[in-house]
Structures are given as C-alpha cells and as structure tokens.
Design a protein around this nucleic acid. Structure first.
Length: 569
RNA sequence: GCUUCCAUGGUGUAAUGGAUAACACAACGGUCUUCGGAACCGUUGAUGGGGGUUCGAUUCCCUCUGGAAGCACCA
C-alpha cells in the first residue's frame, strides 16, 4: 500500500469502514483515480454492494471533513471511487521519489538467497536458452537485492559426462587442428570446440563400436588414468570457461561461485550409498533409485547400474554444498520448464537427505526462447543459433538503425550501440511472464517504436537532453492546478514500489518490464501535451523536477532488468 | 499410453473471482513549422468447443479438441 492509499484508508476508516482495506484502479481515468470495492463489506452487512457504496459516499459528505488529497468521492455501482487532487499527488511523489530508497524494500534484510542460473556446459555452445537464462537470472537477482536480500549468484556447469566425452573424441580425431588453435582467438577456439562436439556427437550415432570409442573418454575423465586426455580436457575446458566469462561480462553479469559437476561426483555417490542403508533409496534392476512414486511423483535413477552417479545424485551433493557454503534461506534454481517434474522428485529426495533444505529449494521455471519468423535462420544451416550469434544479429540491426542518428553526436558510438543492443535483447526476453515461452521477434526487439528496450532508453535520453538545457532550482513550487497528463504521470510513479514488490513475490521481473513500458507511454503523453522549456520559470522548474523523477524511476527500473541507460542515442 | 503445463484480435502479449477484456506490432486514418518525430491521437479486430461452481468466470472444477514438455540408468 503506497502513501496515497494509506491516506485513503484513513478516510474510509473515518466513515466507519473497518478491517482490511484494498484499493484497485478504475478501468477508465474519468471514473476516478482509486477505487474501493464494497463486495466484502456488503456481505458482512448483508446489504447490496451498490447500496453500501452509496451509503459510504453519503456518510463522507455528511461528515464534510477536510482531506486535501481528495477532490471528490463518487459511488459507481458497487465501487467507491476517489478523485484526487493532482497538485497534492505531485507534491507527495516529488518528495518521495527524491529518496534514494524509493522503490526498494527492507523485507529481505538478514536473509540470504542463493540464485543459480546460466549453467552452460563447458565444451559445448552457449546457446539461446543459456542466454535467456542468464538474462532472467541476473534480473531476478537484482529484484531480490532491491528488496534487501543478500544474494549469491551461483552457476552450476556440467563439465563431465557424455557430452564432454563426445567433444573429446572430436578433439582427438582432429588433434592437429586443436594444436594449431592455441594461437587462434578465443572466439575461434570455442567455435572449434563446437565443431568438435558436433563431430563426436555424429560419430556416436554410428553404432556400438563408435559409441564404445567415445565412452573410453568418459571413463578417462572419471578415472583420470590418461594424462594426455586429461591435459587436453583441462585446456579445452579452460577455453570454454574464459569464453563464458566474456559473455557474462558483456551482459553485465558475474558469479559469486562456480560449481562443477566434476566436483559433485564422489560426494554424490557417498550420499546415495548412505541413503541406501537408511532406506531412502532402493535398488532396482541394478540401479539405485528414489521411489518418487510413493509420493505421487515418479521414480528416478540416482546411481546407474554401472555404479556411476546420474545428474540426480550429483545434484544432491550440490545442494549439500549450497547449504554448507552459504546456509541460505532459499535456493532458487532458474531452469527451463522441461525439468519441472525432475525437480519435484529431487526436492522430495532432498527432504530426506538434507532436512534443512525442506521448503528452501525453489525451481523458478523459465519459459523457452523461440526466434520468431526466422525459421530460415535456424534451419538453413541445420545449426542452432548460439547466444552470441543472436547478440550479433541484434547489434547489426541496431547499428543499421542508429548509425544515421548518431552521426555528429558527441558520443562513443561503439559503446552506445552496445548498450542499446543489450537493452533490446534483454527487454525482449524479459517482457513476457518469466515462465511463458518467449517468442523473440528480432524486428520488434530493435524497433524504434513500440514495446521495446530502445523505446525505454529513448525516454531517458530525451529527459537527459531537456535537463541539460535548463537548470533545476532546488526549491520548486507545485502549481495548485496541474494538467491531467502531469497527474497521470505522478500517479504512475507511485506504483513503482508496489511493482518492485510484486516482482519479488512472483519471482518475476516481467512485472517491472510492463510497468516501465506503461510509465514510458505515460511520459510520452505528457511530453506531447506539456512543454517544459517554453513555460515560465516557476512551471518550468516544477516540470523539470517531475521529469527528473521519471528519469530516476526509469533508470532504477531498467537497472533491475539489468539494462544500462544511455544519455544520448 | 501416463504425468505436467499451455490455449485471449492477423501477430506477440496483459488482466489478486469483479466495472465496458488492456497494450504493442501489423492495417487504415489523423496531429504537429520537433523542449530529441525514435513522438502523439483515432478506427477496425479476440477469451478454442461444451458443461459446472458463483450474485459475478479470461481466471476455479469437469470434459472434448489442439499444442508443448517429461515419463529410470542423458543433462
């Protein structure tokens, strides 16, 4: 509840409303600024909601109390609608938005959250899904930090297993090439690894004999009995990790800790074996499984019949590591929806293995990313589009659009193009509900108008430009009458704190994307109707303060999405 | 076959069980001799089918249709 709603709640209490009070927004501005629905009250009193609403309004008129914020109150059917005084609203918001803590929350103070995201696999490509996951995870981290939580960013990477064995087979088949790659750029080296993986994966499909060849490398990794294989493996792994670091940095992210599957191998076996003795796990067809079916879920293998731990067993060790390393209040796994049922079983097993984790493991389901209208792009080559290919495509489009307009401006063109491109990319991925599949429309994401990152950045650039041309005086006077567009803009800013809060509650950064877009539209309406620099000193100064607040809220909101602003574009 | 998730204008998305289903793109038509037009305003157009719960359902339940994902020794 924001400060205006608190005032309105006081008003309602003064006319006899008790209990929990909630407000909503009328569907049209001409119906009022805030609404109080009388359904609950009507049930309580055994009267019709419409009657209750009109009685409340009548009571308000009889009391005739002075509330400066209220211009009038009207009953609309079952609703009591409040019309606010724009000038008062503007005064309050300008005052509140000045505070650096505007939009932040203290609820998470003293709580520690571990948030796991990105999770690419070394020796394999960083594909689109990883990119979306990285962007989503970083934003979720910022949303929680904004609410006072201490957050640790962690990244769990599969650096052992059959996918690595396939890549190693490819590397050894093309060993000479690998050796010459040492002098190539990081980008080229990683590209080579991608090809080597594809080469190995293709080979693996050729039959049992080929499969056996690949499996040798898998065994080598676990047994560490072949120094040459290990040396090549370590080197290739290093290339991958350096490359991932480059991507993280480019997208404004970083990790407090990297966990690797290779570290979880032994401990995973120990945990499952111990659990076998206490009856948490059982043997089945030579494998060791957890009987999820006894809990309404499904059974899963934790140690296969060859005695190797599966992903599940390693993840138990990972969970243990999370708790011993950080003793978190919550571990959030940002992972695609295809693992939903897997996580349900895993968390259930964890309740027995690691009781302290109970209720503290959360699977934040991320929707898939699909490229819209670019079937050619992905199928023509038969390859999957990688993360940095998409970044390049976006950047190429942005450059086409912006090169013209940037000419003659005193800006670092490279840097502006990079920031706008990343903004387009991130906003495009964060604007839909976090668990919804995202259909990424390259054209729309870079579009100069409409629901896009560049559109939001443009607002800030415009405001910055205006503020540069005129100096704000510290004391400002809010006029007694302000324009509807100014009132709408002011009311919009009030919503920011509740939006950042709802993003925490729903684990969903898209709440912020949607809000920022609304705010941007609200600003553009204001901009079209209310000139700033042409007005007299007093009005100009008020409007300068108003748009400065908009810029501040916008900048803060974009930060929560992981998007950096540009002052000119 | 079983389990889970999803279905809203031409396209992409919104809507704690509440007011006339909102927004963007596309299409069509306007505004303004730009505090940065990368703008603003308007028009057309949608809740997959059928039941049920409710004063009230896009929202909850059942069913059908259509799609996605998962279903043990991969991650």
């Amino acid at each position: 509840m924001n400060s205006i709603e608190q005032q309105l709640a006081e008003v309602l209490k003064s006319i006899g409303v008790s209990g929990e009070i909630q407000f909503s927004k009328p569907p049209k501005p001409e119906m009022g600024d805030f609404a109080f629905a009388c359904f609950a009250l009507a049930k309580e009193q055994g009267k019709a909601p419409n009657l209750v609403a009109s009685e409340l309004v009548e009571e308000f008129r009889i009391q005739n109390s002075e509330f400066r914020i209220i211009e009038k109150i009207e009953a609309f059917g079952p609703y009591v609608n409040f019309f606010l005084n724009g000038s008062e609203v503007a005064k309050i918001i300008l005052d509140e938005a000045k505070d650096e803590t505007f939009g932040t929350h203290a609820i998470g103070k003293g709580k520690k959250y571990v948030i796991e995201f990105a999770c690419p696999n070394p020796l394999k490509a960083f594909h689109l899904g990883h990119l979306k996951n990285l962007i989503t995870g970083e934003s979720v981290v910022r949303v929680f930090e904004n609410a006072g939580y201490e957050v640790v960013r962690v990244n769990y990477q599969g650096d052992v297993g059959m996918h690595v064995a396939k890549a190693l087979w490819g590397i050894f088949d093309w060993k000479d090439q690998f050796d010459t790659m040492r002098t190539a750029s990081l980008h080229e080296r990683v590209e080579f690894l991608g090809r080597a993986y594809a080469h190995g994966a293709t080979h693996y499909e050729k039959g049992e004999e080929a499969q056996a060849e690949v499996v040798v490398y898998n065994d080598n990794m676990y047994d560490r009995n072949n120094d040459e294989v290990i040396a090549y493996y370590e080197e290739a792994r290093g290339w991958s990790l350096a490359y991932f670091d480059e991507i993280y940095a480019r997208l404004g992210s970083h990790f407090g800790k990297l966990y690797f599957e290779s570290q979880m191998f032994r401990r995973g076996i120990e945990i499952v074996n111990a659990g076998l003795e206490t009856g948490i796990f059982v043997k089945s067809d030579g494998a060791i499984i957890f009987e999820g079916s006894k809990h309404g879920l499904h059974d899963r293998v934790f140690i296969n019949s060859k005695g190797f731990p599966t992903y599940e067993a390693k993840e138990l060790a990972l969970a243990e590591a999370h708790f011993t390393d950080y003793n978190p209040d919550m571990v959030i796994h940002v992972v695609g929806k295809e693992q939903t049922q897997y996580f349900e079983v895993l968390f259930k097993a964890l309740e027995f293995i690691l009781p302290e984790s109970s209720g503290k493991e959360y699977h934040l389901i991320g929707g898939f990313l699909q490229l819209k209208g670019d079937e050619k792009m992905s199928s023509r080559t038969g390859n999957i589009v990688t993360g940095d290919q998409l970044i390049e495509m976006v950047q190429h489009k942005i450059a086409e659009i912006m090169n013209e307009s940037l000419r003659g401006k005193q800006v670092d063109v490279e840097q502006v193009l990079e920031k706008v491109s990343i903004a387009a990319l991130k906003y495009g991925m964060l604007k839909a509900d976090v668990s919804q599949d995202v259909s990424f429309d390259l054209q729309e994401s870079v579009s100069v108008n409409g629901d896009s990152g560049p559109y939001l950045l443009y607002i800030v650039a415009r405001i910055t430009s205006i503020l540069r041309k005129s100096k704000r005086e510290a004391p400002y006077i809010v006029p007694d009458q302000i324009a509807p567009a100014e009132k709408e803009l002011s009311l919009h800013m009030f919503e920011f704190p509740e939006i950042t809060w709802s993003a925490v509650e729903s684990y969903d950064p898209s709440k912020i994307s949607k809000y920022l877009f609304d705010l941007a539209q609200s600003f553009n309406r204001f901009y079209a109707l209310c000139p700033v620099l042409q007005e007299d000193a007093q009005l100009q100064n008020f409007r300068l303060h108003l748009i400065a607040s908009v810029s501040q809220v916008m900048t803060r909101g974009l930060y929560l999405l992981g998007i950096e602003i540009v002052e000119e574009m």
